[in-house]
Nucleic acid binder design. Sequence first.
DNA 1: TAAATATATGAACAAATATTCATATATAAT
DNA 2: ATTATATATGAATATTTGTTCATATATTTA
Lengths: 119, 119
Amino acid sequence: MDYLDCEDEVLHQDKIEEARKKMMNGDIIFDLSNLYKVFSDETRLRILNALLISELCVCDISDLLGMTHSSISHQLKVLREMKLVKAKKVGKSVYYSLKDDHIQKIIEIGVEHINEKEI
Amino acid sequence: MDYLDCEDEVLHQDKIEEARKKMMNGDIIFDLSNLYKVFSDETRLRILNALLISELCVCDISDLLGMTHSSISHQLKVLREMKLVKAKKVGKSVYYSLKDDHIQKIIEIGVEHINEKEI
DNA sequence: TAAATATATGAACAAATATTCATATATAAT
DNA sequence: ATTATATATGAATATTTGTTCATATATTTA
């Protein structure tokens, strides 16, 4: 393990200790990584973006994104499991909508970041 | 392609059109997905979290996270390429720090979301 | 009741990605 | 100059993950 190889004079024990104390705990890091993983896929982002505009059934989303029902359905399952969308069954159709407004905020800040980087 | 199989009566053409018009364009979706991909990995999140607290060299980060220099260095490269961190060389060491404060905001909103979900 | 439609899902496959290992480069110390 | 140290990086490996394909379930219609 070469993470033990640094000379003591190079390590900043004070800073390391401070960081160790103030850092978020492992569970939160784990949950956070899973949350952002949802937003890291273009298909899921497009689905969330669409639902931000309107409630839609699976057929609508498939048509809108030009992708198979299966693919969309798999991704909707991920979004459901992460509790980012809710499903409402009406007849043979299932209507999806967003579960809360953090989604909008998360996307907005991301867009803000990207726009500033372009300058 | 079974995304063409839905009956016309099931599709909501008005909603689909509205979504099509209002949705973000593909380039932004692509950039967004790449941005969130950075936050989707626990190692990178821990590095960002540490740098949020203090400027650190590679040795510090390796020691703090209990991971090899190589692994940390690879992830720092990703963070550099995404322009989320900046590097300052001093002697043999390279000191890393955050490049802007969107990082903090993105993490904060994620934490907020997770905490509310726990209720 | 049988056939058709909308959605869901398990398994297989392909593509992406994180870590390890080996090695390279740059700087400092001897 | 030579050796040691801090960091970087290419290639290989292992794991994860998105889509496709086949099939299952639920609801409606004939």
